[in-house]
């Protein structure tokens, strides 16, 4: 596979774009290798937060700062960093205008082998095979919910996630989220319809045991005809009240032998 400093990564929802970026970045020779990551059309930074915690030398760029991105990318390129731009599945990469030198861009399409998306195949310099995932997005519905500050009860989250991914609230093709749990840990959940299991990753972040977390957590759901209000309501019912948070955090601190700060 040809390498270039700016990797544009496109593909259907759940095909494995973020996973490809993670693997590609970590396959570089030096563990100190620098990188920068930009997610286009993400709106809430689920993937960005996951990558940032798993790859401390990967800088996350903010799409909202679009005017300054070209300058930042230029600086990072000068430092020898690899740049990754993940293009949301709902954005047409062929119509995308980016403020980068096209000669520096390497286009990667992460596609199931059965895909007949000739436009994307022709756009790509390289096509990376992906698992078979749902690809008919003619009636796609996307729902995103920031949850920053919410602490969820693990048993409740387990029930909610099972219901969500098994169709209790409508057809869900893709769900991913970052959740803060009462024991201070944060987890990345990644579900793709058609793949056997949800991927659960404990994020490499310090335990948060001082009230409500001031770090990102949130959920993104892709599917069709699902009941957003019921999802939001059930998710709300999984959250803990302030007094319960204080009680459990005190217990966890005690069990960890820590002193309250």
């Amino acid at each position: 596979m040809k390498t270039a400093p700016i990797n544009l990564v496109a593909g259907p929802s759940g095909s494995g774009k973020t996973s490809w970026i993670y693997t590609h970045f970590h396959s570089q020779q030096s563990p100190q290798a620098l990188g920068a990551y930009l997610a286009l059309g993400a709106q809430i930074p689920v993937d960005a937060s996951y990558l940032a915690t798993e790859s401390p030398t990967l800088e996350v760029l903010d799409e909202a700062q679009r005017e300054s991105i070209a300058a930042v990318v230029e600086m990072r390129l000068a430092e020898g960093a690899a740049i990754y731009v993940e293009i949301g599945f709902h954005i047409d990469p062929l119509a995308l205008v980016l403020p980068f030198d096209p000669g520096l861009c390497h286009r990667v399409a992460v596609l199931p082998s059965s895909s007949e998306d000739l436009d994307l195949k022709n756009w790509a310099d390289d096509v990376v095979p992906a698992a078979e995932v749902y690809r008919d997005f003619s009636a796609t519905q996307i729902w995103r919910s920031p949850l920053t500050g919410q602490i969820l009860d693990p048993a409740s989250l387990d029930t909610f996630w099972h219901e969500l991914t098994q169709g209790a609230y409508g057809a869900v093709h893709r769900a991913k989220g970052i959740f803060d749990l009462v024991d201070g840990r944060a987890f990345y959940f990644n579900y793709v319809a058609g793949l056997p299991n949800t991927q659960y990753v404990e994020l490499k972040v310090p335990r948060w045991l001082k009230g409500r977390p001031e770090r990102f957590s949130g959920l993104e759901v892709v599917g069709e005809g699902f009941d957003q209000a019921s999802i939001a309501s059930t998710l709300g019912d999984c959250g803990l009240e302030d007094d319960a948070i204080a009680y459990y955090q005190a217990q966890i601190k005690e069990s960890l032998g820590e002193q309250a700060a």
């Binding site: 009860d153 048993a155 409740s156 029930t159 059930t234 019912d237 999984c238």
Partner: peptide
């Protein structure tokens, strides 16, 4: 109840 969700329900 084994969870806060189950308790609310």
């Amino acid at each position: 109840y084994p969870s806060v969700l189950a308790e609310k329900r």
